[in-house]
Amino acid sequence: MRQRTIAKSVEIVGIGLHKGVPVKMKLEPLDSDMGIIFYRVDKGITIPLKIENVVDTKMATVIGKDDVVVSTIEHLLSAVYAYGIDNLRVVIDNDEVPVLDGSSSGYCMLIEEAGIKELDKSKKAIKIKKDVEIVTEDGKKVALKPSKHIIYDFSIDFEHPSIGKQNFHFDYSISEYKENISRARTFGFLHEVQYLRSIGLAQGGSMENAIVLDQTKILNPEGLRYDDEFVRHKILDAIGDMALLGYTLVGEYDAHAGSHHLNHLLTKKLYEDKDNYEIIDLEEAEAEAHVFQMAYAKVQS
């Protein structure tokens, strides 16, 4: 199995969730072994997608270098990671990736418009060998576990009548991602949105790009896309955050009430001990390569 990039460059213009300003973004193909790279064209700064370049995880995953940042990268990366793209340059003219409709479905369409190109070098993946977890005092947990498959399992528990307890088990494939994960939108509570705007954030947030709830109900007139859209979006975010590993994951991600911050701590902890993982070559690892071949089988290119 070979590394992947996109077949041609594609552009999009959208609004940033927090600053609320227009952002032009272009996705460009890259050669083998170049990874995912963000380029702030307005600043002339290149920021490779690496764990050590994460500078903030409070409201979104933010990477930066030399005081230049790119924020809210997780939805784009979720789609890029789901489609198995290893090498890509993201050229952007502001400090925030466009939010689009609050999901990653627009990025799936953009990737399919660009097409997928196989490169000359073999694809690598990160295989989880030992359980690694982060657990907080209030019961939140994120973990990576060994598995022959690619699995994301997430549960949430909100004291809100429209959310409550939800869990979702996702067996990875591109077709399943498109159908069951990519359309799930980000969500927020009205009182939080009002506070965020008072401190200069969420300026681009609206019911056009998020599910908004008051104390008792969902305010979006169209309602939900899935009955459990909230937990599905948490998986969407987690897939984007796992892109920081630098390799496609072979293993199980398991979380209860996880967050961008906990995901960042998890990726750091995994790499602290080389016994936790193995970097495998999918030209040589036949069993794992078969898993990816099945997962990629229905992708359009």
Rank of each mutant, 00 (worst) to 15 (best):
A289E: 12
A60R: 02
A238T: 03
N87G: 06
H75F: 02
T136D: 04
G246L: 10
E113G: 02
S103C: 06
A60E: 01
R89W: 00
I51Y: 10
I280C: 10
D138I: 14
G16F: 00
F158L: 12
F230L: 14
Q300T: 15
H169G: 15
M59D: 05
D214I: 08
D67M: 12
I218K: 15
L17C: 09
G64K: 06
V193A: 06
I134V: 15
K130Y: 13
Y152V: 04
I279L: 12
S162K: 14
I45F: 01
N167V: 04
S104I: 00
A79G: 13
H256P: 00
I37Q: 14
V21W: 00
E52W: 11
M242H: 08
I151N: 12
D56S: 10
R183P: 00
G258F: 12
V13D: 05
D281F: 06
E272P: 11
S103E: 04
F187D: 05
F168K: 02
E284L: 15
R185T: 04
K165I: 15
E133H: 08
H261V: 01
N94Y: 11
P22F: 06
D86E: 14
M1Q: 11
D138K: 09
G44T: 09
K178T: 09
S105T: 00
E252V: 04
R2S: 09
L249V: 10
Q293F: 08
F154M: 11
P48W: 08
T46M: 13
Y107E: 01
V54R: 11
A82G: 11
K58A: 11
L119C: 01
I150E: 02
N87A: 06
N180F: 05
A210H: 12
D56M: 07
H233M: 00
E286T: 13
L245C: 10
E284H: 06
V212P: 05
I211S: 02
V62P: 00
E272F: 09
Q166P: 15
R232I: 06
L265Q: 11
A297Y: 11
M34Y: 07
F154R: 07
F158T: 14
D31P: 00
G164M: 04
K129T: 10
M25C: 02
R197F: 01
V135S: 09
L244Q: 14
P221G: 08
G200S: 00
P22I: 05
L282D: 03
N220C: 12
Q215R: 04
K65Q: 12
E286F: 12
V70Y: 03
E113M: 01
N94Q: 10
E192D: 11
D131G: 13
K24C: 08
V55E: 04
R40A: 01
D138V: 10
D95F: 10
Q293V: 07
I156P: 05
N167T: 14
V91G: 07
D42W: 07
K178P: 02
D281C: 12
V23C: 11
G84P: 07
E284S: 09
H75K: 04
T5S: 13
M294N: 08
N180V: 03
S198T: 01
